[in-house]
Design a protein around this nucleic acid. Structure first.
Lengths: 362, 362
DNA sequence: CTGAAAGCGCTTACAG
DNA sequence: CTGAAAGCGCTTACAG
């Protein structure tokens, strides 16, 4: 054991959990005594009750600051019957999504005193709902943020309401009270992709869809179709392939599309992973991207700029979405000011790289 | 703390926390009453105290099971002066590493009643240590798992010991008591890479290193050099380039190496991200991988199989490492039986894909 | 082997 | 505007 030992530290040696707590952290009782008030009044200051005389409040705040007092969240939680933990409930298999979302939630929780507890889950498990319930009730979670595709499960919404757990669902469609949701703008993003492709002059345009179990699959397809229609084009049924947001399924789906004759000159993929698979399929088919084939992704995760050629894609500000979700949860469902003032901050945007170009001239 | 809704908020609308709580969850008092014992005895059963008569224990366990009683972690934590939360402290920028590690920790914590609180941090921040201390002390964390590169910071080890927080450091070198560490086998992995490359017949072999701030950079280099030496080769200083574990720095470093004359016929990269960058550099230089150049990565993250050609790399079982770390932390530093019996479960292994081959014959 | 009392550090409900 | 009492659901220390 190195470092600072205080005079009253009589511990013999080794990491003893109790002995080493240098100067014990002050409690509400210490602050009350030092400020010459009851602990209830200190409690009022902590909880920002308006009914405290300014002078009293200032005196207490000074003592709190001087001693670096921080209320114990466990004791508060016990008395409140509710912890200061926020859960992130997710089943999205993409690590980049998960990390960006966590980071965003953490951004939004910063300085609030809340902490983030992560809870991946499996919607297909038979214990899914009971596990979720146990997790939330046992920890008496302050609230949860739920991301796709779990967020789209109506059983989850019902459960959360039934046990009275505050929540924010993140999804690409309005599935619940607006107070309880952050709605993504997937349609808009897919629309931008369609616009880009048609403006390049493509007419034989294909789409690789994500799995039916994600609402975003449908939204992205819908937005894409709308965009094509605006350009006077249709999404031909045989130019639509179903995949599952993974690299492998994207690869297979693209292989099928490229066997068609005439084959598409552009493929819009429901996410970057599938687009990376499509790039692989093009290579195997001896096609040059973008000279022979335009490939476009969705998400703008790291992989988009790592593959060759770097992917033109639709960027979703996942971290910012997470930040907004956390702020909204903490505010009890109130739309964050920033988001109200500038809804565009969670809007998708087109990122043009090297995988898109005009159709082959022949 | 943004106090938004308090428990006695009897607002007519919206999710009322109290109204919906169907049947209240039983407490230790309920169980004690129903079992005809004192709550202290129930507490003994919960905490697996040996001094309870078998008959009594069974009776109590039956009541617990019947009512689905679960002790409140907040109340337990308050009495224990220690929560049932485990923190993951990290600053690794790779999302895949973070998610795999989290998943592994969760695997190891499963059924233990602990929950995982995530805490990314920035070693370079001036508040780094105070923030960390505040986080741990305020939440009275049961313990923490620290990953590279924060885990390699001696200030962190000192702090943790000083405040008496249980911890496991994950690193590529033994930096602490064996009870407090999970040591990775990076040297072995790099050695395997060297063996593979030399067996293919290469002699002009380069290395792209990670940043000095990660011990793994040095270990991987060391293991690689050892492997080359065994084959009677040396790692030439001008064939070593320094990068920072990122795609961009890997790209730049590889460009420099490929300008040399004669240029290397194989490059071993400290991780997959840099190897992806090296692949990009080769393409820009008009070189074919693996015909003109062998490129090898380290980690076997998803990106390794997404790039073209798919990367030969060294697989690290990150998730398993995480699981072992959690088990060890919960066991108070005792090596998990599984790991003792089979240390190889956290050993690296060579994964041969398409980015490696014999050197060009010319 | 078992229990009654006190306490962990907060808050609610009730007074004044 | 402020406080004394009781309580949140557990555990420790002390008895027996």
């Amino acid at each position: 054991m190195t470092a600072s030992k205080t005079p009253d530290d009589h511990s013999p040696e080794g990491p003893n959990l109790d002995a080493d707590s240098s100067r014990k952290r002050p409690t509400i009782n210490d602050i009350a005594r030092l400020a010459g008030v009851s602990k209830k009044t200190v409690s009022r200051v902590i909880n920002q009750s308006p009914s405290v005389r300014d002078e009293t409040r200032e005196r207490i705040e000074a003592v709190i600051a001087e001693h670096g007092y921080e209320p114990d969240p466990q004791a508060r939680g016990l008395a409140f019957r509710r912890s200061f933990l926020i859960g992130m409930i997710y089943d999205n298999p993409n690590p980049q999504y998960v990390v960006n979302m966590q980071q965003g939630l953490l951004d939004g929780m910063k300085g609030s005193g809340f902490e983030l507890v992560v809870h991946p889950c499996d919607r297909a498990s038979p214990h899914f709902l009971t596990d979720l319930r146990t997790f939330i009730e046992r920890q008496r979670l302050y609230g949860v943020v739920v991301t796709p595709s779990v967020s789209e499960d109506e059983r989850v919404g019902r459960l959360l309401r039934e046990i009275g757990c505050e929540y924010i669902r993140i999804a690409s469609v309005q599935l619940d009270d607006p107070d309880r949701m952050i709605v993504g703008r997937d349609r808009l993003g897919a629309h931008q992709a369609a616009k880009h492709i048609t403006e390049l002059g493509h007419t034989r345009i294909a789409f690789i869809s994500g799995p039916d179990t994600f609402r975003s699959s449908h939204e992205r397809r819908g937005g894409f179709e709308d965009g094509l229609n605006e350009a006077g084009l249709k999404l031909e049924p045989n130019f639509v392939a179903n995949a599952a947001y993974t690299f492998e399924t994207g690869l297979t789906a693209a292989e099928e599309l490229l066997k068609l004759s005439p084959r598409p000159t552009a493929i819009f993929c429901g996410n970057d992973e599938m687009a990376a698979g499509a790039l692989q399929a093009a290579r195997r088919a001896g096609l040059n991207v973008p000279a022979d084939l335009t490939v476009i992704g969705f998400d703008d995760f790291q992989i988009a700029s790592r593959v060759w050629p770097p992917l033109t894609t639709i960027r979703i500000p996942t971290r910012e979405v997470g930040r907004m979700a956390a702020l909204k949860l903490i505010a009890g469902g109130q739309e964050p000011r920033e988001l109200k003032a500038e809804p565009e901050r969670i809007a998708p945007s087109l990122v043009v790289r090297e995988s898109s170009g005009p159709p082959p001239s022949k």
